[in-house]
């Protein structure tokens, strides 16, 4: 049996793992760091997903961004916003060097990694698909965050369990009050309109990405503000390449085996269009 994974260092010493199945196509996947978590991802989501994708003939590279996991900090003082675009590009180049058949890339990220995937996809025409798992930071605005959170509270108010949680002290009522206060302040100060202007710009950028034939899968956890962020941002986009799905009952990092496996199944299903291995020949790679 040929060994499926190997370690790699690339760029200025970024540490990575390459997963290369025996039969590969022209599309590879790059996983982007989920905040400060190492490259195995939250609850090993990236490791397990990379091995599943390998069964479909999709090679992948998962790496620790600068200063995360095993990778060293950058010494060139590159601003974070630029680093979030450059390092995924360096990772794609590294994957193409390792697996020369690869021409196009899927970028997959959780939380901050999802935001980085969006930015990197905009900047690089090699990206043919992105998977955004619980992205929240698109607008980077306090008023926006409170808007999404208030929508979630509105949803919760329709559930009996939410009221029970509030009455029994499971819900931090101070956070609820703070959110409502932030909403009032944002409306009075005009911060809402600034946030909406920024959101409109993000919406236009997403449309451009879709027009470039880049496929987008957004996964939102039920117990997270993401679904509300996405509804506010892209709710009006009806495009066949944009798919938004919700994982009910899941928290931000999918730290429940059923939710994690559900996310893996949805991503694999979405990625099937990029598979290099026919369904008949496919076998799940287990390591």
């Amino acid at each position: 049996m040929t060994k499926l994974e190997r370690p790699l260092r690339f760029a200025h010493g970024l540490c990575a793992t390459v997963t290369e199945p025996e039969h590969v196509g022209t599309v590879g996947a790059v996983f982007l760091s989920a905040g400060l978590l190492p490259r195995s991802g939250p609850a090993r989501l990236y490791t397990l997903l990379a091995r599943r994708l390998a069964g479909y003939g999709i090679p992948s590279l998962r790496f620790d961004a600068s200063g995360v996991g095993d990778s060293p900090h950058r010494r060139d003082g590159l601003p974070l916003a630029q680093m979030m675009v450059r390092e995924p590009a360096e990772a794609m180049e590294a994957l193409q060097r390792e697996v020369p058949q690869v021409r196009g890339h899927l970028l997959i990220g959780v939380c901050a990694g999802a935001y980085a995937a969006f930015l990197a996809a905009e900047a690089d025409p090699r990206v043919v698909g992105i998977v955004l798992i619980n992205p929240q930071d698109f607008v980077g605005d306090g008023a926006w965050a409170s808007m999404a959170h208030a929508r979630r509270l509105g949803d919760s108010a329709r559930r009996l369990q939410a009221w029970i949680n509030l009455a029994t002290g499971r819900t931090d009522y101070r956070k609820v009050v703070a959110t409502l206060a932030a909403r009032v302040k944002s409306r009075l100060t005009g911060a809402d309109s600034v946030a909406m202007t920024r959101a409109s710009a993000i919406n236009a950028r997403m449309r451009l990405l879709l027009e470039r034939d880049c496929r987008v899968l957004c996964l939102a956890s039920g117990f997270d503000d993401t679904a509300h962020h996405l509804a506010l941002l892209y709710g009006d986009i009806d495009h066949p390449l944009l798919r938004t799905e919700r994982i009910d009952g899941a928290e931000h990092l999918l730290r429940n085996p059923q939710h994690r496996d559900d996310a893996i199944a949805r991503i694999v299903d979405w990625a099937e269009g990029f598979a290099a291995v026919s369904a008949e020949a496919r076998e799940v790679v287990e390591l």
Binding site: E5, P7, G13, A16, T17, D70, S71
Partner: peptide
């Protein structure tokens, strides 16, 4: 800062241990 070298320790059953040197 010393460099970190990612590596694998291959096991007899075909598996491996991820390591950093």
């Amino acid at each position: 800062m010393p460099e970190t070298i990612p590596m694998h320790i291959d096991l007899a059953d075909g598996g491996w241990l991820a390591a950093a040197w």
